[in-house]
Write a protein that binds this DNA or RNA. Structure first.
Length: 134
RNA sequence: AACGCAGGCUGCCUUAUCGCACCGGCCCCGGCCGGUGAGGAAAGUCCGGGCAACGCAGAGCAUCCUACUUCCUAACAGGAAGGGGCCUGUGGCGAAAGCUGCAGGCUACAGCCAGUGCCACAGAAAACAAACCGCCCUGCCUGCAGGGUAAGGGUGAAAAGGCGGGGUAAGAGCCCACCGGUCCUUUAGUGAUAAAGGGCGCAUGGUAAACCUUAGGAGUUGAAAGACCAAAUAGGUUCUGCUUUUCCGGUUUUGGCCGGAAAGAGAGUUGCUCGCUCAAUUCUGCCCAGGCAGAGAGUAGAAUGGGUAGGUCGAUAGAGCCCGCCAGUGAUGGCGGGCCCAGAUAAAUGAUAAGGAACUGGCAUAUGCCAGUUGACAGAACCCGGCUUACAGGCCUGCGUUUAUU
RNA sequence: GCACCCGUAGUUCAACUGGAUAGAAUGCCAGAUUCCGGUUCUGGUGGUUGCAGGUUCGAACCCUGCCGGGUGCA
Protein backbone atom coordinates (compact mmCIF):
# COMPACT_ATOMS: atom_id res chain seq x y z
CA UNK A 1 0.00 0.00 0.00
CA UNK A 2 1.25 3.41 -0.95
CA UNK A 3 1.82 6.24 1.49
CA UNK A 4 -0.18 8.74 -0.51
CA UNK A 5 -3.12 10.99 0.31
CA UNK A 6 -4.71 12.28 -2.90
CA UNK A 7 -7.71 14.55 -2.97
CA UNK A 8 -10.13 11.66 -3.53
CA UNK A 9 -9.27 10.31 -0.06
CA UNK A 10 -9.94 13.67 1.62
CA UNK A 11 -13.51 14.58 2.41
CA UNK A 12 -14.54 17.83 0.70
CA UNK A 13 -18.27 17.59 0.04
CA UNK A 14 -20.17 20.15 2.06
CA UNK A 15 -23.24 17.95 2.06
CA UNK A 16 -21.51 14.88 3.47
CA UNK A 17 -19.54 16.91 6.01
CA UNK A 18 -22.87 18.06 7.41
CA UNK A 19 -24.19 14.50 7.35
CA UNK A 20 -21.06 13.24 9.14
CA UNK A 21 -21.41 15.72 11.98
CA UNK A 22 -25.16 15.27 12.30
CA UNK A 23 -25.39 11.45 12.15
CA UNK A 24 -21.86 10.16 12.80
CA UNK A 25 -20.72 8.29 15.93
CA UNK A 26 -17.59 9.36 17.75
CA UNK A 27 -15.16 8.96 20.62
CA UNK A 28 -12.33 10.95 22.22
CA UNK A 29 -8.73 9.77 21.95
CA UNK A 30 -6.53 12.52 23.35
CA UNK A 31 -5.58 14.87 21.74
CA UNK A 32 -8.24 14.10 19.11
CA UNK A 33 -11.96 13.81 18.87
CA UNK A 34 -12.86 11.30 16.17
CA UNK A 35 -16.19 11.14 14.37
CA UNK A 36 -16.97 8.41 11.81
CA UNK A 37 -19.88 7.41 9.61
CA UNK A 38 -20.44 4.28 7.53
CA UNK A 39 -21.65 4.77 3.94
CA UNK A 40 -22.98 2.69 1.06
CA UNK A 41 -20.88 2.46 -2.11
CA UNK A 42 -23.15 4.87 -4.02
CA UNK A 43 -23.05 7.44 -1.23
CA UNK A 44 -19.26 7.17 -1.03
CA UNK A 45 -19.07 7.77 -4.77
CA UNK A 46 -21.26 10.85 -4.54
CA UNK A 47 -19.29 12.22 -1.59
CA UNK A 48 -16.12 12.22 -3.73
CA UNK A 49 -17.40 14.93 -6.07
CA UNK A 50 -15.36 13.20 -8.75
CA UNK A 51 -15.97 12.98 -12.51
CA UNK A 52 -18.17 10.18 -13.78
CA UNK A 53 -15.21 8.17 -15.12
CA UNK A 54 -14.20 7.19 -11.58
CA UNK A 55 -15.95 3.96 -10.66
CA UNK A 56 -14.42 2.83 -7.39
CA UNK A 57 -14.53 5.11 -4.31
CA UNK A 58 -11.76 4.89 -1.67
CA UNK A 59 -12.38 2.99 1.53
CA UNK A 60 -11.96 6.04 3.74
CA UNK A 61 -12.53 9.75 3.18
CA UNK A 62 -10.98 11.74 5.96
CA UNK A 63 -10.95 15.37 7.12
CA UNK A 64 -8.80 17.15 9.67
CA UNK A 65 -9.87 20.16 11.67
CA UNK A 66 -8.96 22.23 14.68
CA UNK A 67 -10.92 24.87 16.51
CA UNK A 68 -10.44 28.58 16.06
CA UNK A 69 -11.23 28.88 19.75
CA UNK A 70 -8.09 26.97 20.77
CA UNK A 71 -5.78 28.38 18.10
CA UNK A 72 -6.47 31.98 17.20
CA UNK A 73 -3.64 32.18 14.65
CA UNK A 74 -4.02 30.68 11.20
CA UNK A 75 -0.37 29.57 11.28
CA UNK A 76 -0.98 27.34 14.29
CA UNK A 77 -4.12 25.81 12.82
CA UNK A 78 -2.28 25.03 9.59
CA UNK A 79 0.62 23.49 11.52
CA UNK A 80 -1.65 21.18 13.52
CA UNK A 81 -3.64 20.07 10.46
CA UNK A 82 -0.47 19.42 8.46
CA UNK A 83 1.01 17.27 11.23
CA UNK A 84 -2.19 15.25 11.52
CA UNK A 85 -2.34 14.81 7.75
CA UNK A 86 1.29 13.68 7.58
CA UNK A 87 0.80 11.15 10.41
CA UNK A 88 -2.35 9.76 8.77
CA UNK A 89 -0.55 9.45 5.44
CA UNK A 90 2.20 7.34 7.03
CA UNK A 91 -0.16 4.98 8.84
CA UNK A 92 -3.40 4.81 6.91
CA UNK A 93 -2.85 1.13 6.02
CA UNK A 94 -3.90 0.35 9.61
CA UNK A 95 -7.52 0.97 8.55
CA UNK A 96 -8.79 -2.35 7.11
CA UNK A 97 -10.42 -2.23 3.66
CA UNK A 98 -13.83 -3.60 2.81
CA UNK A 99 -16.48 -1.02 3.61
CA UNK A 100 -16.77 2.73 3.06
CA UNK A 101 -16.25 5.26 5.83
CA UNK A 102 -16.06 8.98 6.53
CA UNK A 103 -13.74 10.02 9.36
CA UNK A 104 -13.24 13.44 10.93
CA UNK A 105 -10.22 14.15 13.11
CA UNK A 106 -10.74 17.17 15.34
CA UNK A 107 -7.81 18.43 17.38
CA UNK A 108 -9.12 19.36 20.82
CA UNK A 109 -5.92 19.98 22.84
CA UNK A 110 -5.26 23.64 23.65
CA UNK A 111 -1.52 23.43 22.80
CA UNK A 112 0.54 22.20 19.85
CA UNK A 113 2.29 18.86 20.40
CA UNK A 114 5.44 17.78 18.49
CA UNK A 115 5.04 15.62 15.40
CA UNK A 116 6.19 12.31 16.94
CA UNK A 117 3.68 12.56 19.79
CA UNK A 118 0.85 13.20 17.33
CA UNK A 119 2.08 10.34 15.15
CA UNK A 120 1.99 7.82 18.05
CA UNK A 121 -1.44 8.96 19.22
CA UNK A 122 -2.85 8.80 15.72
CA UNK A 123 -1.50 5.29 15.25
CA UNK A 124 -3.20 4.04 18.41
CA UNK A 125 -6.42 5.81 17.48
CA UNK A 126 -6.47 4.07 14.10
CA UNK A 127 -6.07 0.69 15.79
CA UNK A 128 -8.97 1.54 18.09
CA UNK A 129 -11.07 2.50 15.08
CA UNK A 130 -10.27 -0.85 13.48
CA UNK A 131 -11.41 -2.69 16.67
CA UNK A 132 -14.68 -0.81 16.69
CA UNK A 133 -15.36 -1.80 13.10
CA UNK A 134 -14.87 -5.45 13.86
C1' A B 1 34.36 50.02 22.99
C1' A B 2 29.86 48.90 25.88
C1' C B 3 24.76 50.07 26.87
C1' G B 4 20.10 52.56 25.62
C1' C B 5 16.70 55.06 22.13
C1' A B 6 14.98 56.15 17.05
C1' G B 7 15.00 54.94 11.80
C1' G B 8 16.28 51.74 7.57
C1' C B 9 17.82 46.91 5.28
C1' U B 10 17.74 41.58 5.91
C1' G B 11 14.28 37.78 7.54
C1' C B 12 19.47 31.21 6.51
C1' C B 13 21.12 28.73 1.79
C1' U B 14 21.86 24.14 -1.32
C1' U B 15 20.80 19.02 -2.45
C1' A B 16 18.25 14.25 -1.95
C1' U B 17 13.90 10.82 -0.59
C1' C B 18 8.53 10.43 0.48
C1' G B 19 4.07 13.45 0.05
C1' C B 20 0.54 17.90 -1.53
C1' A B 21 -1.40 21.85 -5.29
C1' C B 22 -1.21 24.05 -10.12
C1' C B 23 0.79 24.38 -15.22
C1' G B 24 3.02 21.92 -19.62
C1' G B 25 4.21 17.34 -22.33
C1' C B 26 3.65 11.95 -23.27
C1' C B 27 0.64 8.01 -23.67
C1' C B 28 -1.39 1.85 -22.58
C1' C B 29 -6.60 7.07 -19.61
C1' G B 30 -4.53 7.08 -14.76
C1' G B 31 -0.01 6.82 -14.48
C1' C B 32 4.97 8.78 -15.87
C1' C B 33 8.39 12.97 -16.92
C1' G B 34 9.59 18.23 -16.42
C1' G B 35 8.67 23.12 -14.23
C1' U B 36 6.69 26.35 -10.40
C1' G B 37 4.79 26.99 -5.36
C1' A B 38 3.58 32.42 0.88
C1' G B 39 5.05 37.69 3.37
C1' G B 40 7.49 42.19 4.76
C1' A B 41 4.05 42.62 7.09
C1' A B 42 0.22 37.67 3.42
C1' A B 43 -2.23 40.67 9.72
C1' G B 44 -5.61 44.86 11.35
C1' U B 45 -9.54 46.07 7.54
C1' C B 46 -7.96 52.22 8.83
C1' C B 47 -7.86 55.21 3.96
C1' G B 48 -7.54 55.43 -1.59
C1' G B 49 -8.42 53.17 -6.44
C1' G B 50 -9.33 49.31 -10.30
C1' C B 51 -13.41 45.85 -11.28
C1' A B 52 -18.84 44.49 -10.92
C1' A B 53 -24.06 45.23 -10.07
C1' C B 54 -27.90 48.58 -9.01
C1' G B 55 -34.02 50.12 -15.07
C1' C B 56 -30.86 56.93 -16.98
C1' A B 57 -27.70 56.83 -10.99
C1' G B 58 -29.78 64.69 -12.86
C1' A B 59 -30.52 69.18 -9.31
C1' G B 60 -31.05 71.18 -4.34
C1' C B 61 -30.99 70.32 0.95
C1' A B 62 -29.35 67.15 4.68
C1' U B 63 -25.40 63.72 6.19
C1' C B 64 -20.25 62.26 6.24
C1' C B 65 -15.06 63.33 5.29
C1' U B 66 -10.70 66.58 4.56
C1' A B 67 -8.11 71.36 6.29
C1' C B 68 -0.35 75.83 6.49
C1' U B 69 1.83 76.03 1.14
C1' U B 70 3.64 73.98 -3.41
C1' C B 71 4.51 69.55 -5.82
C1' C B 72 4.10 63.93 -6.72
C1' U B 73 0.29 60.40 -7.92
C1' A B 74 -4.81 56.64 -11.21
C1' A B 75 -6.28 58.32 -6.35
C1' C B 76 -5.71 59.18 -1.11
C1' A B 77 -6.65 60.92 5.48
C1' G B 78 -0.39 58.70 1.68
C1' G B 79 4.55 60.68 0.18
C1' A B 80 8.40 64.73 -1.02
C1' A B 81 10.20 69.63 -0.46
C1' G B 82 9.29 74.18 1.97
C1' G B 83 6.95 77.78 5.72
C1' G B 84 5.12 78.88 10.75
C1' G B 85 4.88 77.19 15.94
C1' C B 86 6.72 74.23 20.21
C1' C B 87 10.59 71.32 22.74
C1' U B 88 15.71 69.43 23.70
C1' G B 89 21.05 69.85 23.37
C1' U B 90 25.07 73.08 22.39
C1' G B 91 27.85 77.78 21.03
C1' G B 92 27.86 83.37 20.99
C1' C B 93 26.12 88.31 23.07
C1' G B 94 24.20 90.14 27.83
C1' A B 95 24.33 91.92 34.89
C1' A B 96 19.61 89.62 34.06
C1' A B 97 15.20 89.11 31.31
C1' G B 98 16.10 87.64 26.80
C1' C B 99 18.04 87.68 21.64
C1' U B 100 20.54 84.71 18.16
C1' G B 101 23.69 80.68 15.21
C1' C B 102 24.00 75.29 14.58
C1' A B 103 22.12 70.19 15.26
C1' G B 104 18.05 66.94 16.40
C1' G B 105 12.90 65.89 17.45
C1' C B 106 7.50 66.91 17.53
C1' U B 107 3.44 69.38 15.08
C1' A B 108 -5.27 67.37 13.21
C1' C B 109 -1.30 73.98 11.71
C1' A B 110 -8.29 77.32 8.06
C1' G B 111 -11.64 80.68 10.85
C1' C B 112 -13.74 82.32 18.16
C1' C B 113 -12.93 91.23 15.58
C1' A B 114 -20.02 86.00 11.22
C1' G B 115 -23.04 84.38 15.10
C1' U B 116 -24.44 81.06 19.34
C1' G B 117 -22.98 78.06 23.53
C1' C B 118 -19.62 76.64 27.63
C1' C B 119 -15.56 78.17 31.23
C1' A B 120 -17.15 73.77 37.72
C1' C B 121 -14.91 75.30 42.67
C1' A B 122 -12.58 79.69 44.20
C1' G B 123 -12.85 84.83 43.28
C1' A B 124 -15.37 91.60 43.72
C1' A B 125 -15.48 90.36 38.63
C1' A B 126 -14.98 84.72 33.67
C1' A B 127 -16.06 89.19 29.31
C1' C B 128 -19.63 95.65 25.38
C1' A B 129 -19.05 94.56 32.18
C1' A B 130 -17.26 94.93 37.07
C1' A B 131 -14.54 98.06 43.10
C1' C B 132 -13.64 92.78 48.08
C1' C B 133 -9.03 94.54 50.41
C1' G B 134 -5.93 98.52 49.19
C1' C B 135 -4.65 103.70 47.19
C1' C B 136 -6.57 108.88 46.51
C1' C B 137 -10.23 113.08 46.94
C1' U B 138 -14.62 115.34 49.26
C1' G B 139 -18.15 115.60 53.36
C1' C B 140 -19.10 115.32 58.24
C1' C B 141 -21.50 112.51 63.38
C1' U B 142 -13.55 110.19 63.00
C1' G B 143 -15.48 105.52 60.87
C1' C B 144 -19.01 105.79 57.88
C1' A B 145 -21.17 108.02 53.24
C1' G B 146 -20.42 109.79 48.15
C1' G B 147 -16.97 109.70 44.23
C1' G B 148 -12.18 108.61 41.48
C1' U B 149 -8.73 104.54 40.40
C1' A B 150 -7.29 98.34 37.28
C1' A B 151 -0.53 100.30 39.56
C1' G B 152 -0.50 96.62 44.21
C1' G B 153 -2.92 92.27 47.30
C1' G B 154 -5.78 87.88 47.16
C1' U B 155 -8.58 83.75 43.93
C1' G B 156 -8.00 80.79 39.80
C1' A B 157 -5.93 76.77 34.49
C1' A B 158 -6.99 81.65 32.66
C1' A B 159 -7.94 88.57 35.23
C1' A B 160 -8.35 92.69 29.94
C1' G B 161 -0.99 93.70 26.09
C1' G B 162 4.58 93.35 28.66
C1' C B 163 8.54 96.32 30.69
C1' G B 164 10.76 101.09 31.78
C1' G B 165 10.12 106.36 32.05
C1' G B 166 7.03 110.66 32.20
C1' G B 167 2.56 112.19 34.26
C1' U B 168 -1.15 112.47 38.36
C1' A B 169 -4.72 113.84 44.32
C1' A B 170 -4.07 108.52 43.46
C1' G B 171 -3.96 106.15 38.97
C1' A B 172 -4.73 104.54 33.99
C1' G B 173 -1.78 103.75 26.41
C1' C B 174 -3.42 109.30 29.65
C1' C B 175 1.60 110.41 26.94
C1' C B 176 6.53 108.48 25.18
C1' A B 177 10.76 104.73 23.90
C1' C B 178 11.51 99.41 23.09
C1' C B 179 9.02 94.63 22.47
C1' G B 180 4.27 92.32 21.13
C1' G B 181 -0.56 92.83 18.35
C1' U B 182 -3.48 94.45 14.24
C1' C B 183 -4.36 97.09 9.49
C1' C B 184 -2.21 99.14 4.95
C1' U B 185 1.74 99.66 1.35
C1' U B 186 6.28 98.14 -1.01
C1' U B 187 9.94 94.41 -2.02
C1' A B 188 11.35 88.97 -2.48
C1' G B 189 8.93 84.28 -3.48
C1' U B 190 4.53 79.99 -7.81
C1' G B 191 2.80 80.03 -2.66
C1' A B 192 2.57 79.36 2.77
C1' U B 193 5.43 83.36 4.43
C1' A B 194 9.54 86.72 5.31
C1' A B 195 11.84 91.64 5.39
C1' A B 196 11.28 96.94 5.36
C1' G B 197 8.25 101.35 5.93
C1' G B 198 3.83 103.70 7.66
C1' G B 199 -1.00 104.06 10.36
C1' C B 200 -3.84 102.54 14.95
C1' G B 201 -2.76 103.26 21.69
C1' C B 202 -4.74 98.49 20.81
C1' A B 203 -12.70 99.27 23.09
C1' U B 204 -12.74 92.27 21.20
C1' G B 205 -9.25 85.96 27.12
C1' G B 206 -9.72 80.45 26.17
C1' U B 207 -12.49 76.58 23.70
C1' A B 208 -14.28 74.77 16.73
C1' A B 209 -10.81 66.47 18.63
C1' A B 210 -18.36 72.57 21.18
C1' C B 211 -22.50 73.84 17.63
C1' C B 212 -21.00 76.20 13.48
C1' U B 213 -18.74 79.27 9.16
C1' U B 214 -15.56 79.10 4.82
C1' A B 215 -13.19 76.17 0.92
C1' G B 216 -12.79 71.39 -1.38
C1' G B 217 -14.59 66.30 -1.93
C1' A B 218 -17.99 61.88 -1.58
C1' G B 219 -24.18 57.95 -5.31
C1' U B 220 -24.84 53.01 -2.77
C1' U B 221 -23.34 48.07 -2.17
C1' G B 222 -18.97 44.72 -2.09
C1' A B 223 -16.10 38.91 -5.29
C1' A B 224 -21.02 35.64 -0.27
C1' A B 225 -20.23 41.64 -6.19
C1' G B 226 -21.68 39.55 -10.68
C1' A B 227 -22.16 36.23 -15.53
C1' C B 228 -23.17 31.31 -17.38
C1' C B 229 -24.15 25.82 -17.13
C1' A B 230 -26.38 21.68 -14.47
C1' A B 231 -29.82 19.89 -10.73
C1' A B 232 -34.23 20.86 -7.82
C1' U B 233 -38.73 23.45 -7.04
C1' A B 234 -44.20 26.30 -6.21
C1' G B 235 -41.97 33.23 -8.55
C1' G B 236 -46.71 28.53 -3.45
C1' U B 237 -50.50 29.37 0.56
C1' U B 238 -53.06 32.59 4.29
C1' C B 239 -54.24 37.47 6.41
C1' U B 240 -54.35 42.95 6.25
C1' G B 241 -54.01 48.06 3.88
C1' C B 242 -54.22 51.08 -0.66
C1' U B 243 -55.33 51.74 -6.04
C1' U B 244 -58.17 50.16 -10.23
C1' U B 245 -59.89 57.45 -12.58
C1' U B 246 -61.26 61.46 -15.96
C1' C B 247 -61.71 64.20 -20.57
C1' C B 248 -61.91 64.86 -26.04
C1' G B 249 -62.91 63.15 -31.15
C1' G B 250 -65.00 59.55 -34.62
C1' U B 251 -68.65 55.70 -35.43
C1' U B 252 -75.58 52.32 -37.60
C1' U B 253 -72.35 46.72 -32.17
C1' U B 254 -74.66 53.42 -28.99
C1' G B 255 -75.21 50.15 -21.46
C1' G B 256 -70.95 49.14 -27.16
C1' C B 257 -66.39 49.73 -30.33
C1' C B 258 -61.95 52.53 -32.22
C1' G B 259 -58.29 56.44 -31.65
C1' G B 260 -55.96 60.31 -28.74
C1' A B 261 -54.81 63.15 -24.28
C1' A B 262 -54.35 63.67 -19.15
C1' A B 263 -54.35 61.43 -14.47
C1' G B 264 -52.51 57.36 -11.83
C1' A B 265 -51.93 53.45 -6.10
C1' G B 266 -47.24 52.26 -5.91
C1' A B 267 -42.02 50.95 -7.40
C1' G B 268 -36.79 52.48 -8.75
C1' U B 269 -33.03 56.34 -8.35
C1' U B 270 -28.88 57.86 -1.62
C1' G B 271 -31.84 59.97 3.90
C1' C B 272 -35.56 64.04 2.25
C1' U B 273 -37.73 67.28 -1.75
C1' C B 274 -38.09 68.18 -6.90
C1' G B 275 -37.20 65.99 -11.43
C1' C B 276 -36.74 61.56 -14.35
C1' U B 277 -37.94 56.32 -15.52
C1' C B 278 -41.38 52.10 -15.00
C1' A B 279 -46.41 51.27 -13.95
C1' A B 280 -52.19 47.61 -13.17
C1' U B 281 -55.94 50.73 -15.10
C1' U B 282 -59.84 44.49 -16.76
C1' C B 283 -64.45 41.72 -16.28
C1' U B 284 -69.41 40.50 -14.21
C1' G B 285 -74.02 41.64 -11.71
C1' C B 286 -77.61 45.19 -9.63
C1' C B 287 -80.04 49.78 -9.34
C1' C B 288 -81.24 52.76 -13.77
C1' A B 289 -77.44 57.31 -16.67
C1' G B 290 -73.39 57.36 -12.83
C1' G B 291 -73.29 55.17 -8.59
C1' C B 292 -73.03 50.43 -5.57
C1' A B 293 -71.35 45.32 -4.91
C1' G B 294 -68.32 41.14 -6.28
C1' A B 295 -64.30 38.81 -8.93
C1' G B 296 -59.64 39.67 -11.22
C1' A B 297 -55.10 42.69 -11.65
C1' G B 298 -51.20 45.86 -9.49
C1' U B 299 -48.61 47.15 -5.09
C1' A B 300 -46.94 47.35 0.23
C1' G B 301 -46.53 44.71 4.91
C1' A B 302 -46.91 40.33 8.07
C1' A B 303 -47.22 35.03 8.88
C1' U B 304 -46.33 30.10 7.09
C1' G B 305 -43.99 26.52 3.88
C1' G B 306 -40.62 24.06 -0.03
C1' G B 307 -35.97 23.11 -3.08
C1' U B 308 -30.52 23.41 -3.91
C1' A B 309 -25.59 23.03 -0.86
C1' G B 310 -22.48 21.04 -7.69
C1' G B 311 -19.38 23.09 -11.76
C1' U B 312 -17.11 27.00 -15.18
C1' C B 313 -15.82 32.10 -15.62
C1' G B 314 -14.79 36.44 -12.57
C1' A B 315 -9.16 34.82 -10.98
C1' U B 316 -4.02 36.10 -11.64
C1' A B 317 0.56 39.97 -17.31
C1' G B 318 -0.09 43.85 -13.43
C1' A B 319 -0.73 51.81 -11.96
C1' G B 320 4.18 44.25 -12.49
C1' C B 321 9.58 43.10 -11.20
C1' C B 322 15.02 43.79 -12.21
C1' C B 323 19.18 46.59 -14.50
C1' G B 324 21.12 51.00 -16.87
C1' C B 325 20.83 56.12 -18.57
C1' C B 326 18.48 60.95 -18.38
C1' A B 327 15.37 65.05 -15.84
C1' G B 328 14.32 66.77 -10.82
C1' U B 329 16.77 69.26 -4.11
C1' G B 330 13.22 65.13 -3.57
C1' A B 331 8.69 62.15 -3.81
C1' U B 332 8.55 60.75 -8.79
C1' G B 333 8.60 60.74 -14.10
C1' G B 334 10.68 59.55 -19.12
C1' C B 335 13.57 56.29 -22.34
C1' G B 336 16.14 51.62 -23.47
C1' G B 337 17.06 46.43 -22.38
C1' G B 338 15.77 41.94 -19.86
C1' C B 339 12.18 38.75 -17.08
C1' C B 340 7.19 35.96 -16.17
C1' C B 341 7.04 35.49 -10.44
C1' A B 342 1.26 31.07 -5.96
C1' G B 343 -3.65 30.67 -7.81
C1' A B 344 -6.07 26.90 -3.71
C1' U B 345 -11.86 26.45 -2.84
C1' A B 346 -13.36 21.88 4.02
C1' A B 347 -8.97 25.35 1.23
C1' A B 348 -1.94 23.27 -1.68
C1' U B 349 4.42 24.58 1.04
C1' G B 350 4.89 19.31 5.21
C1' A B 351 8.15 15.16 7.16
C1' U B 352 13.09 13.09 7.17
C1' A B 353 18.39 13.23 6.03
C1' A B 354 23.18 15.40 4.45
C1' G B 355 26.38 19.58 3.52
C1' G B 356 27.43 24.80 3.91
C1' A B 357 26.73 29.56 6.44
C1' A B 358 25.69 32.43 10.85
C1' C B 359 25.43 32.84 16.12
C1' U B 360 26.35 31.09 21.35
C1' G B 361 29.51 28.38 25.00
C1' G B 362 34.17 25.72 26.20
C1' C B 363 39.38 24.28 25.09
C1' A B 364 42.78 27.00 22.76
C1' U B 365 44.24 31.97 20.49
C1' A B 366 47.52 33.18 12.42
C1' U B 367 43.20 30.24 13.62
C1' G B 368 41.74 25.23 14.64
C1' C B 369 38.75 21.53 17.46
C1' C B 370 34.27 20.02 20.24
C1' A B 371 29.10 20.80 21.67
C1' G B 372 24.47 23.30 20.85
C1' U B 373 20.83 26.38 18.09
C1' U B 374 18.67 28.20 13.34
C1' G B 375 14.97 31.03 16.70
C1' A B 376 10.95 36.54 15.94
C1' C B 377 6.25 38.27 14.12
C1' A B 378 3.49 35.39 11.35
C1' G B 379 0.14 31.75 6.28
C1' A B 380 -2.00 34.37 0.11
C1' A B 381 -8.08 33.74 -0.88
C1' C B 382 -10.31 39.25 -6.77
C1' C B 383 -6.08 42.62 -7.61
C1' C B 384 -3.15 47.03 -6.72
C1' G B 385 -1.17 52.04 -3.95
C1' G B 386 -0.54 53.53 1.08
C1' C B 387 -1.17 53.77 6.55
C1' U B 388 -1.07 51.26 11.29
C1' U B 389 0.40 47.37 14.40
C1' A B 390 3.81 42.79 15.53
C1' C B 391 9.01 41.20 15.02
C1' A B 392 14.54 36.72 17.63
C1' G B 393 19.23 37.35 15.51
C1' G B 394 22.52 40.05 12.06
C1' C B 395 24.08 44.64 9.33
C1' C B 396 23.98 50.10 8.54
C1' U B 397 22.92 55.34 10.02
C1' G B 398 21.90 59.19 13.72
C1' C B 399 21.55 60.80 18.86
C1' G B 400 22.45 60.22 24.23
C1' U B 401 25.20 58.13 28.64
C1' U B 402 29.60 55.75 30.74
C1' U B 403 34.72 54.18 30.37
C1' A B 404 39.57 54.40 27.94
C1' U B 405 43.16 56.76 24.59
C1' U B 406 45.00 60.99 21.67
C1' G C 1 -13.93 37.23 2.70
C1' C C 2 -17.21 41.55 3.84
C1' A C 3 -20.19 44.71 7.03
C1' C C 4 -21.38 46.24 12.00
C1' C C 5 -21.85 46.63 17.48
C1' C C 6 -20.06 46.61 22.60
C1' G C 7 -16.16 47.04 26.72
C1' U C 8 -17.35 50.87 34.16
C1' A C 9 -16.40 47.01 41.47
C1' G C 10 -16.45 39.42 41.44
C1' U C 11 -21.79 40.08 38.84
C1' U C 12 -26.03 43.32 36.89
C1' C C 13 -26.53 48.36 35.76
C1' A C 14 -25.96 54.18 36.81
C1' A C 15 -23.12 58.68 36.36
C1' C C 16 -27.58 65.36 33.74
C1' U C 17 -23.68 64.59 26.57
C1' G C 18 -16.65 67.41 29.86
C1' G C 19 -16.64 69.70 36.31
C1' A C 20 -13.52 66.63 40.73
C1' U C 21 -14.02 61.49 46.77
C1' A C 22 -17.05 57.29 39.71
C1' G C 23 -22.64 55.78 42.61
C1' A C 24 -26.72 51.74 43.51
C1' A C 25 -28.13 46.70 44.08
C1' U C 26 -26.03 42.06 44.76
C1' G C 27 -21.62 39.44 46.39
C1' C C 28 -17.56 39.16 50.16
C1' C C 29 -15.70 40.41 55.33
C1' A C 30 -16.70 41.95 60.44
C1' G C 31 -20.18 43.12 64.32
C1' A C 32 -25.31 42.95 66.49
C1' U C 33 -29.81 39.74 66.93
C1' U C 34 -30.14 33.66 67.83
C1' C C 35 -28.65 27.86 71.64
C1' C C 36 -26.75 27.40 66.19
C1' G C 37 -27.81 28.67 61.09
C1' G C 38 -30.95 31.60 57.86
C1' U C 39 -33.65 36.28 57.64
C1' U C 40 -33.05 41.30 59.33
C1' C C 41 -30.01 45.66 60.98
C1' U C 42 -25.16 48.37 61.21
C1' G C 43 -20.29 49.18 59.46
C1' G C 44 -16.47 47.99 56.11
C1' U C 45 -14.29 45.95 51.56
C1' G C 46 -13.92 46.02 46.44
C1' G C 47 -12.17 50.41 40.25
C1' U C 48 -5.16 51.65 36.23
C1' U C 49 -13.58 53.31 33.78
C1' G C 50 -10.08 47.29 28.33
C1' C C 51 -4.82 49.53 26.96
C1' A C 52 -1.65 53.60 24.98
C1' G C 53 -1.32 58.48 23.14
C1' G C 54 -3.63 63.35 22.10
C1' U C 55 -7.30 67.77 22.55
C1' U C 56 -8.83 70.70 27.13
C1' C C 57 -7.46 74.31 32.94
C1' G C 58 -10.00 69.52 33.58
C1' A C 59 -11.72 63.16 30.00
C1' A C 60 -15.67 57.29 32.00
C1' C C 61 -17.63 61.03 28.32
C1' C C 62 -14.34 64.21 22.62
C1' C C 63 -10.38 62.42 18.76
C1' U C 64 -6.61 58.66 16.99
C1' G C 65 -4.26 53.86 17.21
C1' C C 66 -4.20 49.07 19.43
C1' C C 67 -6.45 44.79 22.54
C1' G C 68 -10.56 41.70 23.84
C1' G C 69 -15.66 39.99 23.22
C1' G C 70 -20.00 39.51 20.21
C1' U C 71 -23.60 39.83 15.88
C1' G C 72 -25.18 39.62 10.78
C1' C C 73 -24.43 38.54 5.41
C1' A C 74 -25.01 32.93 -0.23
Amino acid sequence: MQHTLPKSERLNSKKYIQALFRKGAGFTHFPFKIIYLSLSREEALEAMNAPASVQEPPAVQVLFSCSKRNFKKAVDRNKVKRRMREAYRQHKQLVPAGSYFLIAYIYIAPEIFPYHFIEEKLKSSLKRLGDIRK
